[in-house]
Simulated scan of single mutants.
Amino acid sequence: MSLPNPRRGAGALLLALLLTACAGPAGEPAVAGTPGTSSPAYASILAAFDEADSAASAGGNVEALKGQETSPSLQFSVAAVNRAKITGRSQPAFRHTDPVFAAPHEDLPCFLATASLRLTGEEMSPVDVSHFLKGPDGAWRLSHNVQVSADMAPAARSIAGATAGSGTALLPESQRSALVAELFARTIAAGTGELVAPSRVLDQQLAAGWSIYHQQMSAAGITVARTLTGSEWSACAAPAGGGVLTFLTLYATDRLTADRKGGRVTLPVESPDVTATGHREPVSGEALTVSRLEVFLLLVPPTGAATVLGLLDTATSVEPT
Rank of each mutant, 00 (worst) to 15 (best):
T114Y: 02
G165Q: 04
P35T: 12
S143K: 01
V127S: 12
V265M: 02
W210D: 14
A150N: 06
T187N: 09
A10W: 00
T289F: 06
A220V: 06
Q175M: 12
E319Q: 12
T307R: 12
R264T: 15
L293W: 01
G241Y: 08
A156E: 03
V100T: 08
P109Q: 07
L299V: 12
S54R: 01
V201D: 09
V31W: 02
G221P: 05
P6Y: 04
A84I: 07
A156I: 11
A189H: 08
Q205N: 13
P104H: 08
S116L: 10
V300S: 08
L108V: 15
E182T: 02
P320R: 01
A79P: 03
A32V: 15
A238W: 07
Y251C: 05
L202P: 02
T97H: 09
E28C: 13
L183V: 01
S71M: 10
E63A: 15
A48G: 15
G241R: 03
G33C: 07
A30K: 11
A43I: 10
L13H: 03
L206S: 13
A12C: 06
S234M: 08
G36K: 10
T87P: 00
E232F: 10
A113I: 07
L18Y: 06
L142A: 12
A153Y: 03
N82Q: 04
A164T: 13
G243F: 04
E270Y: 05
L299D: 08
S291G: 14
S149E: 14
P35N: 09
P4N: 06
A12Y: 00
